[in-house]
Every structure is written in structure tokens, then in C-alpha cells.
Design a protein around this nucleic acid. Structure first.
Lengths: 340, 340
DNA sequence: CTGAAAGCGCTTACAG
DNA sequence: CTGAAAGCGCTTACAG
């Protein structure tokens, strides 16, 4: 069964293709009678316009692309919803595209723009380590990076960014433990494949140690990969090689919770024996037992700012801007003052 | 800065557009020298072919679409990865599309097929309540439903499905509680907006009660919406209106964990005071405290079967089939024998 | 091995 | 209010 095209419908309806097109696109300048008739034909034959052809011909859309890397990020679903809502109340539509791991993000953005004739692109996550000014300029539309580390060498006037200060947040988390009297603080971080966020959070940990004059110990380090299992395994290794630790900072809640499992299995009580602090404040954190002390990510705010910047640039020729949200530690019960 | 098209590249390279096209598409019949030269021009000018034009012109692709409804489903990310891997080792590519809530799934499938010239479509989740044979036939390509309830009135030879028996699984979960001596078993399910899975699991609960001659009580029912918060709130209400319950069956782990939080807050111990059983066996279930007894979803198996059926139909003219996976209860520590 | 030309299915001036 | 025609950027026979 061959699919009908606009020409077939025009013939069936006894009108020109332009008229069918006008009906499809809800143009007002069609006689009511004609419109109804064409609509009937369309429904009867279940005609669906071909999007490729539309995109190809169309000079312009009202669409903003959301390019996502990292399907597992627990925040992205909520951020997308929030961004989508704002964009649409400003008259724009969001088109979501998940970029495959291993695909260069800036190239994906470019293709996305060309194919969908996008008005702008928002990136959630992604690796822009080697991004150049030239590459950004080539996009030709407003470009916003959200929740990803941005290279320092870039010309800031070419793009926007909405992030948190990961280094500072990690610093504060570790400082918090230190202030509670801990000086044997292990770190569960991510490995080399994660070039951005994990590395920066590790830097915050190191700065806190050095400012508090706490010696950095090699055996206090372990590496996972943003999953429960790897957090669990990392903690098992830590308990083997560093049985004197009194606190653990995991750079993601998911890994923190995996680590907690390892402790329970060994009969180690949180926070009585070891204090545990995570990062992200995912939904689970609050519901974990004991509720997990962690660094809160202002997910809604990031999403809303991102959308607002895009809309601002598109509507008012607002300039590009760079927003860094402050983070707060959410104190729950998984950390405890050291006995003196 | 205008974007270059294939014609511009052809001119710049001093060749015809067909040659550029051949280079882009890795056809073998181009002189090495020519190919290299064209490739250089493409890189220098950072030419990116327009996908809309390609899709429009192309008669056929080697792509299978994965149409997803419900970004929050914790399993879909893993399923997609698994399906993608299998498809690609059979020579097909997966194209992922997230359908927006409120959009009719069968229409989205149709558009998707037309636009991308898909060889087949796999649906993860989605609502096919009112699907008709005619609508399936109109797609014109193999159609597989995975992890979603399928209407009974459909002609089974027109599509495939890979699911678990949700009714039986829920039945067993409740039977398990009953076998442990519980007969005051509350249910946290989903509301009317969830027409498929929630309703079926509720039916399993009801059948277990009736077969065990346990009276169904209105005040043992509460409704949430697949989130922690709604699970928590549902449990709070349950504790108000049904303080004699000894067990709770939540139709999703996420809600079960929310419910657990409510119990902790009230000083109710799991499983000593109330037993708790969930559904899904999400990663977190094992790491919860106490580890959550739940119904395991064979996620990998569902994904692999789905991919294999698609490949089979595409390659060997295999027929459509309907697979129902058996589920097992994973016994952890959140349920306890009643004292007699 | 290469190029000119037709055509994929639309939208949009343009003319009426 | 309506239709014929050009053209979006590609791919693919076809001819050489």
C-alpha cells in the first residue's frame, strides 16, 4: 500500500496542491467549504505530510533544539519538561534529540540545526572540551550549554551557559565533613573517561583537603562510573585498602548509595561508623535510609534560566550570558560529628 | 554565513554533484584521487549534508525506529542500548524518537516511518488502547510493541509483542504476602490516567485476594503516579485511614520506596511492623534499606527478544510473534512472616 | 570513473 | 480565495 502524497490528496479533493498545503498549515485564506472538504479527504485517506519535505522547503521554523548527551542523567527528563514548557509559552517548540555516545556533540548540533531549521540549540550535558570559537560561529544560531563544563578558552560572547560551580560545591561538601571533625575522608569519583564534571569535583575535594591541612592519601581514592554497582564496588575496594576512614564523599548520589550498600554488608553503620555525603540531591537521596546528606542541584532554576536566555536572545536580541548557580548542601542524617 | 550545499562543494572541488554525493555516501566507484580532493574540500568548508534532503530522496534506509513514550521509565535507557547493539550487529541502525505526552502513539509511528523511511518500528511503552488492525496495516512495516499492554481485539498476525504477564506477576506478589500470613494487604496503584499497566496489576491484586478469600476493603486502596512523592503521599493517607494493615503492595518500586519513607517517619519498621513489596526490581531496590522484595522485570530479555524478532522478520521473513516473559519475585528483606 | 538531469514531497511567492 | 510553477538539497538511474 503506497503512501499518498500531497498531489494525490489534491487530485482526490479536486483542488490544487497549494490549497491542500494551506489547509495542512492552517492558513486562514481558504474558503471554509474548501477547507472542510480537503480535511475530510485527508482524514479518510489518513494522509500524513512528509516531514522531510517540509523541513527541506521551509526556510525557517519556530523550533529550538534540545540536544542531550547521557540518557542516564537523572535530571534531564525534568529539565526537558521545564524548558519545553517555557519555550512553548513563548511561542517556540522544543525538538529533542538524544546524541549517541561517541558522536561529536558539536557536529550533532550542526546537523540538527540544518535538518530542522532550528532557531537555536540548547545542549544538556555533552563534551565540549575541544570546542572552538569558529565551530560555535558556524552554527549560526544561539547556542546554550547547560549542565556541562565549558572550556575556558572560548569567546564568551558567542554562547551562553548555565551551570553550577562544581569545584566550589565539592569543596564545600568536603569542608563540611572536615568541619565536623573528619580528616580521613575518602573520595569516590569517576575515571578518565569523564573529562569534565568528575575531574572538577575532584579538584574541589583536593582544595578542601589542602586548605584544611589534611594530607592527601592515595589509598583514599576510588573510581566508579555514575552507577550503583560501580559505587558499591568502589566502596568495597576502599574498605579493603583504607579501613581507617571516617567519612566518604561520593561525587554522585547514585554512587553514594551504592557505597552505602557496601557498608551495610560489612556491618558498618552510617553515620555512626562512617559519614557519607553525596552530590546531586536526586529524588532517592531524601528517601534513602538514612536520608542522604548531599549537594543540591537547582535543577528547575537551571532549566528555567536556560529557557529564558534562549527566549530572550530570540525575541529581544538579548546578549549571550553565563550564569553560575550557587549550590547548597542539604543536611540530612548520613553525616555525623566526630567524637572528640 | 550561509550554509554550503552539495552544489557549492561540487563547484569548489571542480566536480559534479554526483561525485560529491558518491564521496559522501562512500560509494566505491570514485577515483582515489578525486575522492581525496573532494573530502578535503568537505572538511575545509565543514560541509554537512542536509538530512531532510537525503531522507526525502532516499527510497529506503537500513534504519529501525524506536519510539518511546514515558521518559521516566527507568528501564528504557538500558533497553534502548541493548536493542541498538543487536540491531547494529545485524546491519541495521536504530533511530530513537521520544514521543511527547498527549501525542497519539500510532500517528507518531506513522510520521516517523514516513520521515525516516524506516524498515520497522519498535514501541517502548505507549498507549495502544484503541489501536485498530487497519492502523497497523497502514504502517507498512514490521511493528513490535514492547513493555506495553496490548489490546485483545487485534489480529495477532499483524504485529509482534514482547511483554510480561503483569496480572500474574501482581497476583503472585500478593499471593506471596498472603502465604506469609498477611491478610490485611494494602495496595498502592496508579489512577485512571494510566489505563494499561496499573489497571492490570490491580487486577492481579484483586484475584489474589479473592482466591485467598481475603475481603477487599476500600480503605486499603491508594493511588499514586509512578513517583516517590506520590508513593509517599499515598502511604501517608493509607496510614491515616487503614491503621491495621500489615503489608503493602506497591505496583512500582519507586512508589514502594516513597511509601517506605512515610513509614519511617511514623516510626513504623519494615518489615517488622509492615511488610512491603514492590514491582519492577529497579537498580535501587537492591540497594534500598532494607533491600526491597519485588517483582523482577527481565529487562535484558525483553530487549533482546524485541530486537531478535525485528531482525528475524526483516531478514528471513519470519512471522510476527507474541512473547510473554515469566516474572519472578526477588525475595529480599522487606517482607516478613506474620506471627501466628 | 564521472556529470547532467530528473525527481523525492513539500511550501511559497506570483498571478489571477 | 485558488492554482501552476519554481525550488529546497539531496540521490540515482542514465549516458558517456
Amino acid at each position: 500500500m503506497k503512501n499518498l502524497n500531497i498531489k494525490d490528496i489534491a487530485k482526490l479533493a479536486g483542488v490544487g496542491v497549494s490549497t491542500v498545503s494551506r489547509v495542512i498549515n492552517q492558513h486562514t485564506d481558504v474558503k471554509d467549504e474548501t477547507r472542510k472538504h480537503v480535511q475530510e479527504i485527508i482524514e479518510t485517506y489518513n494522509y500524513i505530510p512528509n516531514n522531510s519535505a517540509r523541513n527541506l522547503k521551509r526556510n525557517e521554523s519556530m523550533d529550538v533544539g534540545i540536544l542531550i548527551k547521557g540518557m542516564y542523567n537523572p535530571f534531564f527528563a525534568r529539565m526537558i519538561q521545564s524548558i519545553e514548557k517555557r519555550l512553548s509559552s513563548a511561542g517556540y517548540s522544543a525538538i529533542i534529540h538524544y546524541n549517541i555516545e561517541g558522536n561529536k556533540d558539536i557536529d550533532a548540533a550542526n546537523e540538527f540545526i540544518l535538518e530542522k531549521k532550528l532557531k537555536g540549540v540548547i545542549c544538556l550535558g555533552g563534551d565540549f572540551d575541544k570546542l572552538t570559537d569558529q565551530e560555535i560561529q558556524r552554527l549560526g544560531v544561539p547556542f546554550i550549554l547547560a549542565s556541562t563544563e565549558i572550556p575556558e578558552n572560548l569567546n564568551r560572547s558567542l554562547f551562553s551557559s548555565v551551570i553550577i560551580d562544581n569545584e566550589m560545591a565539592a569543596y564545600r561538601a568536603v569542608k563540611y565533613l572536615s568541619d565536623m571533625g573528619h580528616n580521613k575522608i575518602a573520595l569516590i569519583t569517576t575515571g578518565n573517561e569523564d573529562k569534565s564534571i568528575g575531574t572538577i569535583r575532584t579538584q574541589g575535594y583536593l582544595r578542601a583537603l589542602s586548605e584544611q591541612n589534611i594530607e592527601k592519601k592515595e589509598n583514599y581514592f576510588e573510581v566508579g562510573a555514575y552507577t550503583f554497582e560501580t559505587g558499591y564496588e568502589a566502596m568495597c575496594r576502599l574498605l579493603e585498602k583504607a579501613n581507617d576512614i571516617t567519612a566518604v564523599f561520593a561525587i554522585s548520589d547514585v554512587m553514594a548509595i551504592g557505597a552505602a550498600k557496601a557498608m551495610y554488608e560489612k556491618g558498618i553503620k552510617i553515620p555512626d561508623d562512617i559519614s557519607l555525603i553525596g552530590f546531586d540531591d536526586i529524588d532517592y537521596a531524601e528517601f534513602f535510609n538514612p536520608p542522604l546528606t548531599t549537594v543540591h542541584q537547582p535543577v528547575e532554576e537551571i532549566a528555567e534560566s536556560t529557557a529564558d536566555i534562549m527566549i530572550g536572545i530570540l525575541d529581544d536580541n538579548l546578549k549571550h550570558q553565563h550564569i553560575i548557580f550557587d549550590t547548597e548542601i542539604v543536611i540530612r542524617n548520613s553525616c555525623k560529628q566526630m567524637n572528640c
